[in-house]
Design a protein around this nucleic acid. Structure first.
Length: 733
RNA sequence: GGCCGCUUAGCUCAGUUGGUAGAGCAACCGGUUUACAUCCGGUAGGUCAGGGGUUCAAGUCCCUUAGCGGCCACCA
């Protein structure tokens, strides 16, 4: 044995050994243990956060050693929004944009882009030693997944869970899609607050450019200052001339904000949209999806929001319609979590899932502990989130994803269409007008976008119906398909045996997006929870607890660490001394410390191997009986047995970090520092009585450590037992 | 504003039903005739955020204050 454990000499060799031995696949006819891997983005490469997938691997190996039929099924996610964003960024470098392509071509291009960039992450997972059954990998755009997603959608449609409605969504004009409430970020910002004169009243707003879409003014019903105006109509001098507007009373108006009077713009503000619904106000859109003012805004039509605002403010000032400006107004703005730009609340017809009934079984299952959360505090969080979950908008205005299988008869539906004509020019307009100028086939071939008004008839079908039908251009929200992950990864015949699966290990921040949706779909379609335990981990951060990001320049490339210190060291560093559910600071120092531990394990093995060899004749003849143990020997054995009992107990409760720490402590500071140091003296005196005992204890420790540090433990074990031996099937006490 | 969590050695953090504090890294002193210097032995360093309470005994339980963080809601 070498003086040191050189990880790179062993890792690839051992991994292919495990592969050849068939350890990536489960043994049948044993108690099942199943984990579904959270599918990483298909075009992703390994980042530090993926390191925590090691948690799954630890459990898979632990259970395998304990005699379970461990199965870890991997997969990849098409990650609609994320991927299209990355693709478009790259496209931009070539001077093009998605608008240069028809939908079908764009899809194909992204598909090729993903194909070219995928697969790398599995290679990197293998370097980390993951015992997943790669042959069973599922991609979220595989035909089996599509079938499942369509079938679910059709079932939901049939059972009345699907509807279309105009909805005010957070629309990102830059990314060209609406974002769910979970995908928006709130940032605090100082903006000017304008006090505008509306006839006899004055109101405060940060968005004067939406004034053309105002359909009411509102005050608090108990506000003494404005009682006389409630229900009345006031005459207002505006930029486009004189107009009348009604004053309404609504409880949600904060009398302390500004003057206590607010303008209601249902088309461009979520709160106003709700108020508008309550008071049956007109919805008047004045900003389009490109983030520009539209034809209802007179001279401002065509201007981008920010520029329009400046101009409008200037004109208002000139006309004396601004009372004052508070330029130190601190408020929260919703921005796109992806590109960081201001979102434009916009009315867009959307597809929705009614969740009121669907979520009830989920809440019940969680309360009944059919699913358990580790750490437990997340149980409360997900319950809180479910309680106030409202209807789920499942449509996204992006191309990369599963296209909603709804078809519109274009002669009956006056949909808004955008397509590229045969000269590759962009044409926009309503179907009825366009069909007079262009043949249907040209519209169909060049189609980029279709937006059918709410209430349009549609046909749900996986294939195109007979006639002049165009398919919905919206795709399903990524989580609509990945939410059905547990229902597309197992084979039909496995459900009786492996479902619900045992553990879902994933990042805590996708608890609402993913975990809750999987529960929802699974309980809806299978009447069962998809997994019994949810193990949540947090962000891997830098040494100061800050999130790694390119802009901060604190990104650590895990593969570099693996190359330098070994996969075991990297894995262990993410577990050692980390509280379950807390942030996981990753530092090179820590990886180094764990590399040292791997080396320690190696050298304990080396020492024992050398000692056994030197004294082989004496050792062979000597048998130590339990009752002959001296106090310190008995004590060591007792401590080890205690550790082992604790180990099992804690591992089953997912206290991985603590368990690992305790084994570390025992192996290094107890077994090596104390016992082996004492044993050295004995050996010098030719006393070999405990050598076998210590070796057995050490090998048992290797078993305990194996899930955490698979490579070094297996390497040492093979030094003892030969190159075909494996801890994964070792028979130890 | 609602719910949850955190505050322990210079840094990052452990500390399971309450029994006078630990690890890793960093620092200091000493030690290499071969298991490992990726090591061993030792030293220093904490009024366990502040205050109050329960108890024979509190880092650990209860109340409270402050600061930090997470989730949610609001934000015209």
């Amino acid at each position: 044995m070498d003086k040191r454990f050189i990880a790179t000499d062993y890792e690839n060799k051992l991994y292919s050994f495990w592969e050849k031995q068939g350890f990536l696949k489960p043994k049948t006819k044993l108690k099942p243990f199943t984990i579904l891997m959270p599918p990483p983005n298909a075009n992703a490469s390994l980042h530090a956060g993926h390191g925590m997938y090691a948690v799954d691997d630890i459990l898979i190996r632990y259970k395998r050693i304990r005699g379970f039929s461990s199965l870890w099924i991997p997969g990849m996610d098409h990650a609609g929004f994320e991927t299209q964003y990355v693709y478009e960024k790259q496209l931009k470098k070539t001077g093009k944009s998605r608008l240069d392509f028809d939908r079908a071509t764009l899809y194909q291009n992204i598909e090729r882009f993903v194909k070219d960039n995928s697969g790398l992450i599995y290679q990197q997972f293998k370097r980390l030693g993951f015992l997943a059954d790669w042959s069973r990998s599922v991609f979220t755009l595989d035909s089996a997944v599509l079938e499942r997603v369509y079938a679910t959608f059709i079932k939901m449609q049939t059972e009345g869970y699907v509807y279309r409605d105009d909805y005010i969504v957070n629309y990102c004009p830059f990314c060209g899609t609406s974002l769910s409430e979970l995908e928006v970020k709130h940032v605090e910002r100082i903006d000017p607050l304008y006090y505008l004169k509306y006839g006899p009243l004055v109101l405060a707003t940060v968005r004067p450019e939406t004034k053309f879409g105002d359909t009411a003014l509102a005050v608090h019903p108990k506000d003494k200052r404005y009682q006389q105006w409630i229900g009345k109509t006031v005459d207002v001098q505006g930029l486009l001339g004189q107009f009348k507007i009604k004053v309404i009373a609504d409880e949600t108006v904060d009398p302390d904000f500004g003057t206590g009077v607010v303008k209601i713009t249902p088309a461009h503000d979520p709160h106003d949209f709700e108020v508008g619904k309550r008071h049956h106000l007109k919805v008047k859109q004045v900003i389009n999806r490109q983030g520009r003012l539209n034809e209802h805004t007179g001279p401002y039509a065509g201007l981008k929001v920010k520029i329009a605002r400046e101009k409008i403010v200037a004109d208002l000032k000139q006309k004396g319609l601004i009372e004052r400006i508070d330029d130190q107004y601190l408020h929260a703005v919703t921005v796109c979590y992806k590109c960081g730009r201001d979102l434009e609340p916009t009315i867009i017809p959307n597809w929705f899932i009614k969740v009121k009934q669907l979520k009830q079984p989920v809440i019940k299952a969680i309360k009944d502990k059919q699913v358990r959360f580790f750490p437990v505090r997340y149980q409360k969080q997900i319950l809180q989130w479910l309680e106030q979950m409202h209807d789920w908008p499942i449509s996204r205005q992006i191309t990369w994803g599963i296209r909603i299988p709804a078809w519109y008869d274009i002669n009956q539906t006056n949909a808004y269409l955008v397509f590229l004509n045969s000269q590759k020019e962009s044409v926009k307009g309503y179907a009825q007008d366009l069909l007079k100028k262009y043949p249907f086939s040209q519209i169909e071939a060049g189609l980029q976008e279709l937006s059918a008004p709410v209430g349009s008839d549609y046909t749900i079908s996986v294939t195109k119906p007979e006639g002049q039908y165009l398919q919905e251009t919206d795709t399903f929200d990524t989580w609509f398909s990945s939410g059905q992950w547990p229902l597309v990864t197992l084979k039909a015949e496995e459900y009786a045996y492996r479902f619900p699966t045992d553990v879902l290990g994933t990042l805590s921040d996708i608890l609402p997006f993913w975990v809750s949706r999987m529960l929802l779909f699974s309980l809806y379609l299978k009447k069962q929870v998809p997994f019994k335990n949810v193990y949540l981990w947090s962000m891997v951060s830098d040494s100061k607890g800050q999130k790694m990001s390119k802009s901060k320049g604190n990104v650590i490339n895990p593969i570099e660490l693996v190359e330098k210190y070994g996969a075991d060291a990297f894995r262990a560093s993410l577990l050692f001394g980390v509280a379950e559910g807390s942030k996981i600071p990753l530092t090179e120092e820590k990886v180094k410390a764990m590399r040292n531990f791997a080396n320690k394990i190696w050298n304990i093995g080396r020492f024992l191997e050398m000692s056994l060899k030197e004294n082989s004749t004496a050792v062979d003849q000597f048998e130590l009986i339990d009752k002959d143990l001296k106090t310190d020997e008995a004590k060591l054995l007792e401590e080890f047995n205690k550790l082992k009992a604790k180990y099992q107990n804690q591992m089953d409760r997912f206290q991985l970090s603590r368990t690992f720490g305790e084994v570390y402590e025992f192996v290094w500071h107890r077994l090596a520092d104390e016992y082996l140091e004492a044993l050295k003296v004995e050996l010098r005196n030719g006393n070999i009585r405990t050598l076998k005992l210590v070796k057995n204890i050490f090998v048992s420790c290797l078993v305990l450590l194996h899930p955490f540090m698979p490579f070094v433990t297996e390497a040492v074990y093979q030094e003892f037992e030969g190159s075909q031996a494996s801890l994964l099937v070792a028979k130890t006490t």
